[in-house]
Each structure stands twice: as C-alpha cells, then as structure tokens.
Amino acid sequence: MNSKSLTIAQWGETQIEPGEIRDLELRFSESYSGMGVAIPVQVRRGIEPGPTIFVSAAVHGDEINGTGAIRQLIMDHSLQLTRGGLILVPVVNVLGFERHSRYLPDRRDLNRSFPGNPKGSLTSRFANFFFEQIVGRSDFGIDLHTASIRKTNFPNVRADLSDPRLREVTNAFGCTLTINEGGPSGSLRRSACEADCPTFIFEAGEVWKVESTVTEHAVRGIRNVLVSQGMIEGDMIDPPYRTVIEKTKWVRAESSGFLDFHVAPGDIVTASSAIATTSSLLGKSREVIESPDDGVVLGMTTIPVASPGEPVCHLGLVDLRENRIHDVVENFPADELQQRIRDDLSTSISIVDPDPVDEEVRPEDEE
C-alpha cells in the first residue's frame, strides 16, 4: 500500500520546492454544516534528496504532549533540512482534540482503525486518508503519545526491534527505555510498518498537558533521528543508559484505600519492594503493594485511591543481576534530563518513604 506514488514535493496543486517550508491544510471530511474539516500540516523539504520522515501527535485527541513538541520544532527557525523531507502533524485527531476526547465523534479509536477504509465509518475513512496522504509519502514515522487518562508514563519508546531499520532509528532517538513490541492490530505504527514505513512511538507524560521536560525529551529525540539520517547538521545526544524491555506487567491493588506511593516514574524496583501502601480514610494501613519482580517503573496511576483489581503501577521487567541500570539511576546529577522528568512527573502523585512497620501490613480483618 505504501508504494510512495505520492511524494513530498506534490500535494494536490501545491508544489513544494527544495529548501522550501509550506503550511498545508489537508481536508479530509466536512461538518454537518458542510464546512471542510482539515488536518494542519507543515512540510519541510531539504535541498538534497533523502528520506522523508513524518512526526505525528494526538492520534488520540487528548494526548497533546507531542503536540507541544512538534510546535517547538515548527517554531524553531534554526531547524534547516539539508536533505530529505519532514512532515510535521501536531494534531492528527483534530475532531477529538476539539472535544477534549481521545476518540472521534463516532466513539471509535483512531489508533485501532489503520490503515482504514475509504468507504467505511468516519474514523475508518479518516484513518485511510491519513495513511494515504502521510504514511504513503514517508520512509519512516515517529508517533508521539502519552499515557491514557488518569495515568502518567515515564518516557519510553515502543517498536518492533526485529526490523533492523527500527533498531537503528530508535537507538538514534536516544530513549533510556525501549519496549520491544509490534503494537496492537490497527495501530498506526503497526500498520505503517506492514506498509514498509518503519514507525515507532514515544510514550511520555499525561493527557491534556504539555510538560516541559517531556517535550524537551521528544524534541531532542526527533533531532537525534534527523541528525542520524543526515537530514540536519548537529551532534546526537546519548541517553545516560539504554535498556530493552521484553515484558511488562501491571501491578494491581488487592485492597481499597488511599494510595501513598513509595516509588516514582522511572525508578528502579526490586522484587518484593514496596510500591505503594493503601490506607483507610481514617489513616489505618490496609495493604502494602509489592513489586512482583525486578524492573523499572514505566507508568503509574495518578488517582490517589484504588479498589481491588485496579492498576496502580506499570513495570518494565528487567533482570537487575545482569543489567546495572540502577547504579546509573542512583547517581543521576540533579540537572540530568531523566532526573528532571522523574521529578516533574512525580508532582502528580503523593510519594512518601515506606514505613518499616508497614512491611508486615496485610489487609485488615473485617470487624
């Protein structure tokens, strides 16, 4: 499907010359009143031939950290392509964005609808339009996401590392944590990869926020990829460590209560260490939620209460006997980006030191 019959140079009747930057509005549908509905896109074309990369955000309309990162790139006049092409899409799901919603008006998930169908539902038609117009012109893709509602994610890249091209560009992006997975059926990245446009996602932060350290990380990573492809001049910035995660696990509460966390996003945990404590409204401890294994905290709930079965913490499982990343993390300088992100994301949750007595706490008996 990704035949590259469409090029970076020609968009309908609009011709983009080498070295030119053009703002476009790609109409994909119309409102009830008959007004056109369009996606805003900026296209940058380098002087010399080279790869075309698309960078998209807000496929889920409420995940706008990536929107903030792409807007920084758009407004950066020092970003001059020497070769190739760059397609910047700050908001894909404009209809969800305008409604503060993850979904389109027909309540379908755009990121489960690719490559779409030109004769299908509103969401399916939209997915097909984006796939043809953006993915169909691109050699690589970077899709920016956040955690879903009432959760936060520590920055991580997710990609199918069986593709050597994805190994190369995700390594260049420079994220400390890479989750090796192909993505769910119908997702943009999986469908794009199947159409020979290697695409990965960057997950970080919360919905409906533009968090400064998260956008800094995203911008740095995108620039790294452009440098690695010879598309802009500059030096790549390496992360303090890199690790590949093959398996993840959600840790869930067994007792209801208020949550006091003992870890933050990005922290390293060991098996049986305390992640959080639940307590009653009158302060009586009910449960110490423990880590089932060694790992790194990928994400956490931002809701200060939990009931049995609700997710509390998302772990990326790591064998700490073979991987010494905890030594690196424990010695982060205060101004290291990873430490600043950890501290910023921690402001959404209550973190306290575990009480040694609480290590023996178990759900209280019913009276």
Score class of each variant (00 low, 15 high):
C193N: 03
A172K: 12
V94F: 06
A58T: 10
S101H: 10
Q80Y: 09
D355H: 10
V43D: 03
S273F: 06
V157W: 04
V59D: 00
T123D: 04
A276R: 00
E25D: 09
N171D: 07
R252H: 03
P304A: 05
L95K: 10
V225T: 00
V157K: 02
P90Q: 11
V329Y: 05
G19V: 04
N128R: 02
P40N: 11
A38R: 05
A271E: 07
D319Q: 06
T7S: 08
D343A: 12
G316I: 09
E168D: 13
V55M: 01
R125K: 14
R167G: 02
N153G: 05
H100E: 11
T82F: 15
F332V: 12
I142E: 09
M75Q: 13
F130M: 04
N117E: 14
P239H: 04
L161F: 07
F130K: 04
P115I: 07
R167W: 10
D163F: 12
L110Q: 08
G116V: 06
F202D: 03
S291Y: 01
G316H: 10
G174F: 11
L315E: 00
P40M: 07
M300L: 11
R83E: 07
L188A: 10
I70F: 15
L320N: 04
T178H: 01
L81A: 10
S348Y: 03
V207D: 00
R324Q: 14
E330P: 03
L24G: 00
I53K: 00
H77W: 13
R223N: 04
E364M: 14
I349Y: 06
I8A: 02
G46P: 02
R150F: 12
P198I: 11
L226N: 05
N153C: 07
D23H: 14
D260R: 02
L6C: 09
S162I: 15
T277C: 05
L24T: 01
A127S: 07
K119L: 15
N65F: 02
N224T: 07
V37H: 04
I47N: 06
Q133R: 10
D343Q: 08
G50F: 13
P105D: 01
G19N: 10
V59W: 00
S31E: 11
L122G: 05
G68A: 09
P40E: 07
E98W: 06
A147M: 05
M1H: 05
N117M: 14
C197K: 01
V157S: 09
Q10M: 07
I268Y: 00
N224C: 03
V219R: 00
M231E: 01
E360Q: 15
H314F: 13
Y241H: 11
K151T: 08
G186L: 08
G50W: 11
S124R: 02
V263E: 07
V352N: 04
